[in-house]
Write a protein that binds this DNA or RNA. Structure first.
Lengths: 207, 207, 207, 207
DNA sequence: CATTAAACGAGACGGTACGTCGAGTCTTGCG
DNA sequence: CGCAAGACTCGACGTACCGTCTCGTTTAATG
């Protein structure tokens, strides 16, 4: 495969530093102001960049925030704790820690809200954020199967459907706990959640 | 408890019809425009009401939309289908049907996003929407215990914690599936989800 | 004929004070900044008024400046100095004094420049500034005819044409001297100009 | 007088063709867009030249337009029609014909407007446009004196003052008629104007 | 039944951010 | 070094919506 060099066109090239500065400034502004009071003028000022430069690279607030927030989730990883339950607990705690950061809370929910009426935006979110993190589920299952904690799945379509289901359950529960119920995702809760996820309600209610 | 009648002061009383018209207009505007392009002037015009009248009753866009959206969720009910699994499947489908309506998608996520930086708003959402629907979980558990599908829980604190957990898991998964993954909540998915919820991952992956 | 009361429409009436403040602020800004560096935001700020208010009343910079400048020329009057020559000299000096003010120089020429490509603007200038001042020529001629310095004119069409001609000559010469040649309109020049106007070149060159 | 060759320094010399192309493009843009909507980027594109090249040669819009417009007036000449009156009528018609061209109207007035607050620009206009055309007045007077239509003038200072006065009267009247009154400079008007100029108002009103 | 005080419609108001555009400068690579 | 291309900073543009205000006009309970 060839290098990614994007065809060195004529004229002055775009400043690479500007991109990083803008995304950082966006996150900072999200922390201080939240989504709705964040203005692109302000972001430009913080980044030491003209508003025009910003609009040359992103179509608007939504696209910019998606990119700024997406980077936050790339630090997630599935540390090996020896058992499936422990692995899940570990990654759920990491995920909750990210969602506890104001730039993530504020930014993520807002772009999700916008995406309900903007298909292009939804696709962008899916590519940049959602699908990138499904790797964690795949990794977790593979590891659990290697350990013999889960059986192998024959049907690949069924397997894919299960990955999606688990992702929705895990991500949904943590997001709901954090942003809707606004309760802390503490080790107790994580333990309870993992129990339900692995063994179901009936088991969970009768330990 | 006192009557709700708010001390019939002198002067012309507020029009009761206006409230209903405004909330309906808000939902209609959410459908057509979505949260971010909805303007209070527009809502006022649609409702055949002056902007002043609107601001006399709600503090702003957020409060108005919370009230407009909250009504949508009151139609949820836990029909008795004979078994816990069937009851869950029924209510999940109902919930998904509401979330499929654009006024709910757009409005709900937006106010949740705003609530990440506005505690009063979060409290209002919790009162108007979230806590009102926990009744469904309570009802479902009571019915399942009557049927002998679930054991009684001795510790009331533990019982409350379980209700919250289940609510986060169910609501979170459906919301995530609908609004983030943007995949349909069809009977297949609901069956799979209910299996995981009742019997856990291990069971679900090897039926 | 009825009063000018402009049909008291519904809603809050426009502030009368705002108009005056805006026009005064416009003249002040013309003095300090000149036409090309004058911004409507700045005018609004000076007038203690929101930009919206300004745009609600004038379509743009051009229209605003026409109105602001037009008022300056309303102070012109044809004082009776006893002879046609003296009357002309008097009004020419007055006119030159107005053109010496920076708000008049800068504003007038700029809107004239714009009017070369904007017929509506040209018409507005003609109504607000040019035609209003033709009264001076009419007045001067009437007075001179009363004194016997000029013969009466029988043909009204011819008379109108002469008024236009004289206006173009007088206004044109003073404007050109002031703004193009950028030389002072002092009493000497005025005397010479009046001689040419009344008695022609041949006489002027051989006194 | 030294050669105009500007010291052939090292490096690639400036393209001579570019200058002409830029000035032509400027005039074309003035015709199509007028002063205020003319942009230097657009001029550069029309001339097939980079913006840099343009700024290397002119300081800005004003200077560029002065040069582009000045060339237009160089085609004026005082054809000998046999009498002073006829000569004046001829040159006035020529002048009016130039002012009827949109690039002249729009460009000339705009730079004059700018020059009210920019002394360097005014000086440049005077050199490039105004003073260059005073030759016509000098020429006309010399010819008339040769013919015996005008007496010789002894005092050179007085003579200079008269040239300026006549120039202001002629140029001023034509410009005012064309751009302010926005009436055509037709042969009738020119005849009337020449009568006033040569014989004065009193004569003109009683032919 | 007249009074009266608040609610009402209309729309102007001071603000603030928007997204675009032009001016003039700077930074590439090519000739 | 000149030049084309085009990204850069800066600042004004004209628009839109917010939430407040000031009008003149209902409208129901009270006196």
């Amino acid at each position: 495969m060839q290098s990614r060099t994007p065809a060195p066109r004529a004229g002055r090239p775009r400043s690479a530093a500007a991109d990083a500065a803008i995304l950082a400034a966006t996150r900072q502004a999200l922390v201080e102001l939240g989504w709705s009071k964040l203005t692109l003028s302000d972001v430009a000022t913080r980044a030491g960049v003209a508003k025009t430069t910003l609009y040359r690279r992103w179509a608007g607030k939504n696209e910019l925030v998606v990119d700024a927030v997406a980077e936050l989730f790339d630090e997630l990883e599935l540390t090996d704790h020896g058992s499936l339950a422990a692995d899940i607990e570990g990654v759920v705690l990491q995920f909750a820690a990210i969602l506890a950061r104001p730039e993530a809370r504020s930014g993520l929910m807002a772009v999700l809200a916008e995406s309900t009426r903007d298909d292009a935006l939804r696709e962008r979110i899916r590519e940049s954020i959602v699908d990138r993190q499904k790797r964690l589920v795949l990794q977790g299952r593979a590891r659990a199967q290697r350990r013999g904690e889960l059986p192998a799945q024959a049907d690949p379509a069924e397997a894919a459907r299960t990955v999606d289901l688990i992702f929705d359950v895990v991500a949904g529960a943590v997001v709901h706990r954090t942003l809707v119920s606004a309760e802390p995702v503490d080790p107790d809760w994580v333990r309870g959640f993992t129990q339900v996820l692995l063994h179901g309600l009936s088991a969970a209610e009768a330990p």
